[in-house]
């Protein structure tokens, strides 16, 4: 009994202290007085005066501030837009790869799988950095295109949104490929044969049979890309330009450059509220899939 209590309480307390409590603090600071809360913020919670006083002191000034300054609105909207578009492109690149892997000879598959996973173990920062040398004005891509004669002037790609899209597709590709691959690998080949026997062309069979049956993989992969990209910081700050507006970057700057902690906290709370929807949808999808397997 003692042992069980110990097993439960140690990780439980750890997570309470270092996950839940910090989050409550963020919530608290986001609701604390802007004037008092200039850094270092004044912790407003005073156990002596109790919950009543605490509640009466709450104010939503930071949140109204978020709605008044259109920088924040634009940042949330543009993060959503960038996340949606890049998820779509990742799917466009990832699906054919997953499909090719699932159709590859059996003995190749573990190797292909490892080739997809290997970049995931390499530093994220380095993978983003690699593109800086490729996309810059004197970079390899421009050198190559100039050499082939496709363009006569170097293209400006680095420090634009296009560079951000390329960076996201590149770094998040494994997250898209793996769930789609596992859905496609389980797919019963005889279903496609049946569709073809019944008069479907290969393309129609793919559209009517393969795509619907791999849908759980597509959904899982899309959420695995969309959710983290929404709060992405490294890619927009290294590959994006000054016009690239993403909420992770705004939060970072609000905190480190403007040192406005209450607003940074409010930005975090709103970002989390936005994320709740895709996270719940993702969980539902996973649960449905698990039930279907059983």
């Amino acid at each position: 009994m003692m042992r069980r209590f110990f097993l439960i309480s140690v990780p439980y307390l750890w997570l309470l202290a270092l996950f839940l409590v910090p989050f409550v603090i963020v919530l608290k600071i986001s609701l604390s007085d802007v004037a008092l809360a200039r850094p270092p913020y004044m912790p407003q919670f005073d156990w002596a005066t109790g919950i009543g006083a605490f509640l009466s002191e709450l104010d939503f000034e930071n949140f109204t501030w978020l709605t008044e300054d259109d920088l924040y609105w634009k940042a949330y909207l543009s993060s959503l837009k960038i996340a949606l578009i890049s998820t779509f492109f990742t799917l466009l690149v990832g699906y054919p790869m997953a499909y090719g892997m699932a159709r590859a000879p059996q003995e190749w598959r573990p190797t292909l799988m490892m080739l997809v996973i290997l970049p995931f173990w390499t530093s994220f920062l380095i993978r983003v950095y690699a593109w800086m040398g490729i996309l810059s004005n004197e970079g390899f891509l421009n050198q190559f295109l100039l050499w082939t004669g496709v363009i006569s002037e170097p293209l400006t790609i680095l420090n634009t949104n296009s560079a951000v899209y390329i960076g996201i597709v590149y770094t998040y590709l494994p997250f898209m490929i793996l769930p789609i691959y596992s859905a496609l690998e389980r797919l019963d080949g005889s279903l496609i044969e049946a569709a073809e026997d019944l008069g479907c062309s290969r393309l129609t069979a793919f559209w009517l049979v393969t795509i619907p049956l791999s849908r759980p993989g597509i959904i899982a992969g899309s959420f695995l890309v969309f959710i983290p990209v929404l709060g992405e910081f490294v890619i927009p700050s290294l590959l994006g330009g000054s016009s690239t507006l993403m909420i992770g970057k705004v939060l970072w700057e609000e905190f480190f450059s403007n040192r406005d902690w209450p607003v940074a906290s409010a930005v975090a709370v709103v970002l989390l509220l936005i994320l709740v929807i895709p996270i719940v949808l993702f969980q539902r999808n996973q649960q449905k899939q698990q039930e279907a397997e059983q």
């Binding site: 910090p22 989050f23 603090i25 963020v26 959710i227 983290p228 929404l230 709060g231 992405e232 910081f233 992770g248 939060l251 970072w252 905190f255 940074a264 906290s265 975090a268 970002l271 989390l272 994320l275 996270i279 993702f282």
Partner: peptide, 10 residues
């Protein structure tokens, strides 16, 4: 699924 910026800030 928590964005790193939020975990770090909190």
């Amino acid at each position: 699924v928590m964005p790193e910026v939020i975990t770090g800030l909190s």
